[in-house]
Design a protein around this nucleic acid. Structure first.
Length: 501
RNA sequence: GGUCGGAUGGCCGAGUGGCUAGGCUCAGCUCUGCAAAAGCUGCUACAGCGGUUCGAAUCCGCUUUCGACCUCCA
């Protein structure tokens, strides 16, 4: 555990606060996971990449983190796009829609997506269906304490009573009176004492497939209780960080606070972190807007809005180039710019690893200003991460290192202009920030040795041709390889490097 | 309607009361058989109108405008 100056913007206080963990050296991190009734889309990529970097940075600081991210696999949901046909025939629904099958399918797809983004796995990934007992227990406690009431086999949380005794709406800036005036027609509205009350348990109608026995009859848990029950179980009554999308602030997170406060006697979370939305044409990407681009579509380019396929690392980079609390607008131009930028960063990074070390003897080649500049750029990386995970600034600084690295490689800067200390700092900083903290990976898979052998042969043949000034042959080799996505680059010293698209 | 948050150069996007990120694009140059890559140079913006200040894109007010949440939503 190294001393640090990490500041986190806490949605609860709306201020950047210096981060300290409840238990020294340990951090409890809970992030709202996906509802697996449909395929994950680009919008989902944002929180999981954001909090992956949070996790990575906390670990980098030396914390032992327990990262819990749930899978919402219970509740009243139907498979995307199925609703229409299911309505036609209830029988079709029973035959086609086995809940576990659907949940399994989309959970697997989600995991695959997370893996492609190089997100670290959560330490615990609890499912709602696996914690029915815990949820029922918690609801019973809430009833015992007089803050929840059963009606017709459902149970609701009494928000008005809660608000009378505890601060309600702090997280989302909500005023209870406003909530009470809601005119919207909601399911079960007539059962509630107040419109602001929310369901803890819902009675299952006969046709509802997902159902569990409870003290109130057969039903299923409401949509806020799982996070409270599961975070309590794995992180304790009070834990350090709870994360999720901004759209969850209300009512989901506000309800979590209310439930847990009654059940445990105190607020559950010390730091709330919320990421902003990904927009498309200025509008939030979401099911209700019908403007989602699924991850599989993004990776294959198979979507009317996509001009091409985008590599998962390009998407990751694109997301990290913006601060997590800003909206991020999708466009092909932006993704394509990210693709080129990432490629440039990565090529410089590869070069860095091969960069000759300065010999370190006292010499006149040392460039003091350059050394100072590199030191500053590298040391600032930590400052930027400490400033509420400002990955945008981290990337900006990493890009400032690129021309320096390329210039040393290209001979414009003498390798001995760097002191050994600066050289080491550079060699240590870039991998730590690029790979360990930002979690970026090479876009091309590791080449197997056979391709390398073949290319070596072609490059030799081409070198011979060039020596004979047989440019027709040398250009043909280069062009044919290019057509296959292999690019040859002639360096000044006659060496040839290559890259695969 | 209520609450909250934005409006930055050709595009995407950081950001602090004064020293004006970064990426992409574009133009020129260097290198080069050519190409690609790379390097160098150039392109100086902060919605509008007031105000505070020696000084504001950054603070305050108003206007215009976009969005998020208030309903499942990352």
């Amino acid at each position: 555990m190294q001393p640090h100056q990490l500041k986190i913007y806490n949605s609860l206080t709306r201020e950047k606060e210096h981060f300290t963990s409840l238990v020294p050296g340990h951090v409890g991190l809970y992030v709202c996971g996906p509802t697996v009734s449909g395929e994950s889309h680009l919008g989902h990529a944002r929180p999981y990449i954001t909090f992956d970097v949070v996790l990575r940075y906390l670990q980098h600081l030396g914390y032992k983190v327990r990262y819990v991210r749930n899978i919402t696999d219970a509740g009243h949901f139907e498979e995307e796009g199925r609703e229409a046909e299911d309505k036609v025939s209830q029988k079709a629904l029973l035959e086609k829609l086995e809940p576990m099958e659907m949940v399994h399918k989309y959970t697997s797809l989600f995991h695959k997506g997370m893996q492609m983004f190089n997100n670290l796995e959560p330490h615990i990934e609890p499912t709602a269906t696996g914690h029915i007992v815990e949820q029922i227990n918690m609801i019973e406690t809430l009833i015992e304490r007089g803050y929840a009431y059963p009606v017709n086999g459902s149970v609701y949380f009494d928000v008005a009573k809660y608000a009378a005794a505890y601060p309600y709406g702090t997280l989302s800036g909500r005023v209870l009176e406003d909530q009470l005036e809601t005119t919207r027609e909601l399911d079960g509205q007539d059962e509630k004492r107040n419109k602001a009350d929310f369901a803890l348990w819902k009675n299952a109608p006969p046709e509802h497939i997902m159902r569990w026995k409870s003290p109130w009859g057969e039903g299923f848990p409401g949509w806020h209780i799982e996070c409270s029950a599961m975070s309590r179980k794995y992180l304790g009554e009070v834990f350090d960080i709870h994360g999720g999308g901004m759209d969850l602030q209300f009512p989901h997170h506000e309800s979590e606070i209310a439930q847990s406060t009654i059940a445990h006697g105190h607020a559950p979370v010390r730091y709330w972190i919320h990421n902003n939305m990904i927009t498309i044409n200025g509008k939030k990407m979401g099911k209700s807007y019908n403007n989602v681009i699924k991850l599989s579509e993004l990776f294959t380019g198979n979507h009317p809005l996509l001009q091409q396929a985008y590599h998962p690392m390009v998407v990751r980079f694109y997301i990290l180039q913006t601060h997590y609390r800003s909206t991020l607008d999708f466009s092909n131009e932006a993704l394509q710019a990210s693709e080129r930028a990432l490629k440039r960063l990565w090529e410089a990074y590869i070069l860095l690893k091969k960069l000759p070390a300065p010999h370190g003897e006292a010499n006149t080649a040392v460039n003091e200003a350059l050394n100072l500049q590199i030191r500053n750029i590298c040391l600032e990386l930590t400052d930027f991460m400490n400033d509420d995970f400002n990955t945008a600034k981290v990337l900006a600084n990493l890009f400032e290192l690129c021309p320096i690295i390329n210039s040393i490689n290209g001979g414009q800067i003498d390798p001995n202009a760097l002191t050994p200390a600066t050289y080491s700092l550079l060699q240590e900083s870039m991998p730590v920030f690029i790979e360990d903290i930002l979690g970026l990976q090479p876009m091309q898979a590791a080449n197997n040795g056979k391709l390398e052998d073949v290319l070596k042969l072609l490059i030799e043949i081409r070198a011979d041709a060039k020596k004979r000034k047989d440019f027709a042959t040398s250009d043909t080799i280069r062009q044919r390889l290019e057509a296959s996505g292999i690019f040859l680059k002639d360096a000044k010293d006659g060496s040839v490097s290559w890259s695969v698209e």
